[in-house]
């Protein structure tokens, strides 16, 4: 049992649920791993506080995830609103090697108290990058998906690209792939810094 617990939270409309569906699709359909996804429902998904969780089992022998909700401490947190940032405590996230990543968006979160005490915290101004580079905040999803793919390490690039093709309209595919590359680069840079920091 090697559960990988992912939680994404923000507010409705930021693509929280779409991103979680991209993660479960990539890991279950393309990587053949057992996975479940749960999400906020009704009003909260349409503008209120919104969350989604994905549990993936990295053991290929496991066919089904037992407990469907993500268990604390998480392997991966993506935090996109100040309200959800306030609920995060440093102990909510794993401290082991190659896991325990946090991605947060400083363009929507002014103050993130716990972040100083989280070792592997990567800030990407997703909304600003999406608007400046691609003209619409919806591309933020592909940026985050790119960063997730690199940091989590269990989704191959081919699987990730197939997933994006599944999710976005074909007219915006090129821009989404560019956004995906941008996210990847941010994450690769971050991993490099982490490594240098250790050395």
């Amino acid at each position: 049992m090697t559960r990988y617990e992912v939680r994404i939270s923000g507010f409705g409309g930021q693509g929280v649920i779409t991103l979680s569906k991209m993660i479960i699709t990539a890991s279950s359909l393309y990587e053949n791993l057992a996975a479940t996804q749960t999400e906020a429902y009704s009003a909260s998904a349409r503008g209120g506080r919104c969350w989604a969780e994905v549990v993936v089992d990295l053991d290929k022998e496991i066919k089904i995830i037992n407990y469907p909700k993500a268990l604390k401490p998480y392997d991966f947190l993506i935090i996109l609103s100040e309200e959800s940032a306030n609920l995060i405590k440093p102990e909510d996230i794993k401290k082991d090697e190659n896991t325990g990543y946090l991605i947060w968006d400083p363009s929507t979160i002014k103050k993130f108290r716990a972040v100083r005490r989280i070792e592997k915290a990567l800030s990407i101004p997703v909304q600003i990058l999406a608007v400046e580079n691609f003209g619409n905040i919806v591309f933020g999803n592909s940026i985050l998906f790119g960063a997730f793919t690199i940091l989590s390490g269990f989704i191959s690039e081919e699987s990730a690209i197939e997933t994006i093709k599944n999710f976005v309209p074909s007219s915006t595919l090129d821009k989404n792939l560019e956004a995906f590359e941008l996210g990847k680069k941010e994450a690769q840079e971050f991993l490099k810094q982490l490594k240098e920091g250790k050395d």
Binding site: K21, I24, S28, L29, T36, Q37, T38, E39, Y41, P68
Partner: peptide, 10 residues
């Protein structure tokens, strides 16, 4: 139930 009905799984 409400949880199972909205769960996404392969």
């Amino acid at each position: 139930d409400a949880y199972l009905g909205h769960l996404h799984e392969p």
